Structures are given as C-alpha cells and as structure tokens.
Simulated scan of single mutants.
Amino acid sequence: MEALLSQAEQLPGLVAASRSPAVRSWDPATVSRALGWARAFRHLHRHLRDAGPGLREAAERSLRRRGLHGGLGQLGRSPSLLSFALLENRALPSPARGRLLRILLLPSGGGEEELLLPLSARRKAAAQLLPACEGPADRAQAQLLLSRLREEEEGSGLAFLDRLPCGPALYKAVASALLEPGGESEAQAVLLPWLLRRGGGARLEAFCRLLPAARLASLCARHPGLLGPYFGLLAAWGGRLAHDPLLGEWRSTHPEVTWSELRERIRLLSQEPEPLASAIREHIRKLKGQDGDFEAPGLSVWTDLLIDLERPDVEKPGRDHSQFVTETWSERDLSSP
C-alpha cells in the first residue's frame, strides 16, 4: 500500500501544474494522462474508504505526511480538483481544452467510469463547450450539446440552454444538433421549444440571420415546426421592401433586408422535396393575393418572387423527403413571429 500512497504525493503537484502557465505546452494526450491519474487516485480512495478502520487511519496519516493535508477526502476529489483547475486555466491550448471537454461530457467507459467524473465539472464544461468547438467540429459540438441535454432532469433542458451565453456559438450548436441523427427527442422536447418560445421573435430572427440559407432550408425539411415561423419571418422581411421604379429594383430602408437575400431564401425553400416545395409556392400565392393579386412585375414583391420561381433555370425539387414534412401549415403557423 505504501507504494500506492507514494504515488499520491504527485496529486498536489499535478493540480498546481494544471493551474499554472505550464499548461501552455500541454497537448490532448497530456490532458488524457492527467485525468487518468486523477481517476486512479479516485479508485485508490474508494479502495481505502471501504477498508477496515485501522487501514483507513494509517492511510490518512501517511497521506498527510506526504503533503495531502486533506487526507482521503482530497484523494477522492482528485477528478474535481484537476477538472476545475484546467477548465479555469485560460492558458490551456484549444486542442487540449477540446480533449478535456470531450472526456468530461462524453466519457468513453460509461457506468462506473462516468460516475468518477464530477457532475459539477461536466456542467462547467458544457458552458465552455460552445466557443471551444468551432468550424469543422460542428458535429462534435452537436453531440456534446445533445449529451449534456440528456444528462439534465426532465423539464430542465430549457433552463440549461437559458444559462448558456446566447450568441452565434450557441445558435450554431443548436442548428447542428437539430440535424444530428438520433437527436429527434431533444429537438422536440428542448431545442425547438427554446428557439420558438413565445416572445422569442428576436432569438429566432438572430438564429435565421446567422445561419446560411441552405442550412435553414434543410432544417425546415427536417423539422416542419420550424417552417411556419421561418416563413412568417420572411413574410415580415418582404413587407419592408418597396419597389424603386427609377432603378427597377426592390429596396428597403432596413439595410439588413435585401431583395437578393429574400429571393435566395425563398428559392432554396422551394427546391426542397415535396410537399414543402409546393407549400412554399402556395403560400406565396396567398400573400400575392392579399397584396392585390397583381400580375405585372414591380407592384408586389410576392408577384415578383413567383415570377422568379417560375423561371426555367430555377431548380425543381428532387427526391422525396415527405417523411420529414408530415405537418400541415395553418394560418397560425404562418403568422409573423
């Protein structure tokens, strides 16, 4: 046992190093080894905790002599001490931090192995997950977010999302999670309600402005509940455009809304498989009728959008994804956010 306890002498130095600028030289493998040592110390703690009183007392005295003034308790908190030290150390490089987040949020062993990773550390890791995973890590980002939502108690997922910094990183994570295979339950129970909740029009608009039009079209094909609010937003944008007869183009007093952007978004929606494509055209026809049902161009933005969609160079919808579009639209669905 003395040999095992002698290894525990390394814990204070390991925690101190994880709090210092020395972590600038750490790579992902170093993070894995450090957390491996922490879990080994935790295993040792459990072994000694379950031993007889005489052995526990002897271990406590030995640990305190070796610099672990917290005794067995400090040994048992090894994963927490190390995890929090690394999470709070801004000197830790991004690749190493990414490995840390994955270990904390997606433990590979499951079962007992997962219990050795502190819940408080996993929650702190989830708050850092979004800005740490960018670019090509979209799928990993989505999987981490879904994993964290599954860890929440039923009904508390919305509160968890509300605690995260709201901005581009979170919106990208939500969009990726909505398209992730196997994430349908979380999408319906948490992600879509959070995105579309009453009074959240500003959130939906920020989400839609951030994402590429093609990704939004894919999201609408996958989740019909998003289509109505998104189209309502497009209808509101279209209402801000006015035709300039001298220039022969649609212009807006709102610089963030342009004819070319609106046309591109509508085109991409209309290129999705049936029944979404036909539904888009039908609702543009309804808006055209409400606008006066003009046939001549330049009088209604909806007339001009229909003319644009009926041009021969506009791609027609391809394969059938009707299994993703099972809901019908109602007038309530199409109301502006």
Rank of each mutant, 00 (worst) to 15 (best):
W302S: 05
V314H: 00
H223P: 14
G36R: 04
L86H: 02
R33H: 06
C166P: 04
C166M: 03
E274H: 12
A235R: 15
G183F: 11
T326D: 07
L11I: 03
R139M: 09
P224I: 00
L11P: 06
H47R: 07
S147D: 02
A17D: 07
E2N: 08
G110L: 08
S335K: 13
A137E: 08
L119S: 14
D308F: 08
R33E: 13
S330R: 10
A96F: 02
S94G: 09
Q10C: 09
A279D: 04
L226R: 03
A29D: 08
S83M: 05
L309C: 13
F41C: 14
L241M: 09
A22N: 02
R122C: 15
S120K: 10
G76R: 07
W194I: 09
V190E: 00
S322T: 05
P53C: 12
S32H: 02
E153V: 01
R222I: 05
G54I: 06
W302I: 03
P273D: 07
E134N: 02
S62L: 10
L158T: 01
E152D: 03
S78N: 06
I307Q: 13
L68G: 12
L211Y: 04
M1D: 06
P337H: 10
T328I: 00
H283E: 11
A96E: 04
A38Q: 07
F84Y: 02
S80V: 04
L100Q: 11
F294R: 01
A85K: 02
R66A: 15
A189W: 00
H321S: 12
K124P: 01
G201S: 15
P12D: 08
K124A: 12
R61P: 00
L276Y: 01
G199T: 11
V15Y: 07
T328W: 03
C166A: 14
P297A: 15
G73K: 02
L247E: 12
D304L: 03
G228L: 12
G183M: 11
R97T: 13
P181H: 04
L241D: 07
A3N: 09
T326S: 11
Q271V: 13
R64I: 12
A51I: 03
D27Y: 01
L211F: 08
F84V: 10
G155T: 01
L247D: 04
G98Y: 00
L210C: 06
L92P: 05
A40G: 07
R267D: 11
L247K: 12
L191C: 09
